[in-house]
């Protein structure tokens, strides 16, 4: 089961995880194009929580008992049994926000533009989630059970 764990003691609140999440989910995967040219801009699926001096990033925990999946009325959210990821299919999503209501982490992001939701997909297709690989201070750890855990 893939999951991103946080080390709040060393999160520096730079928000680069959010920036690179946007890049990872952009069309071009290029930071300048993603931010300056792509319309609509991609959305970050990670949120940096702040209560200075404390900061830490939070995103979907890919729960083993995902409330969002149970609450989803359209079947857009499901848990992929092979990878353990909680996956969101935007094609099926109708934007009822039941998942927003039940996610205990606030990990479901509302896509205002499309009136749907979106969420962390652990950067499927990349070797490591972008937020993890781009965190400048090792505050995010990708715990991939298949690869031997934390």
């Amino acid at each position: 089961m893939g999951k991103i764990l946080i080390k709040p003691e060393v999160c520096i609140g730079c928000h680069l995880c959010e920036i690179w999440c946007v890049v990872a989910h952009s069309r071009t995967k290029d930071i300048l194009k993603a931010f300056l040219l792509e319309k609509p801009a991609a959305i970050s699926r990670v949120i940096v929580e702040e209560r200075l001096p404390v900061t830490f990033a939070l995103q979907c925990r890919h729960c083993s008992e995902p409330d969002c999946v149970f609450a989803c009325i359209s079947g857009a959210l499901y848990k992929d049994s092979a990878s353990g990821r909680v996956i969101h299919d935007p094609e099926k999503c109708v934007g009822c926000y039941s998942c927003v209501l039940v996610c205990p982490y606030g990990g479901i992001i509302i896509d205002q533009e499309n009136k749907k939701v979106t969420k962390c997909d652990l950067c499927e297709g990349f070797e490591k989630p972008y937020c993890v690989s781009h965190c400048p201070n090792g505050a995010l750890v990708y715990a991939d059970q298949e690869k031997g855990g934390v």
Binding site: L5, I6, K7, E50, T55, L58, Y105, V150
Partner: peptide
């Protein structure tokens, strides 16, 4: 968000999700 929650409670709620120490 969780940042708004006082520390002790926050880390209790997130204890499965963090690596302390």
């Amino acid at each position: 968000g969780y940042g708004s929650i006082p520390e002790e409670l926050r880390w209790e709620l997130l204890k499965e999700d963090l690596i302390p120490g």
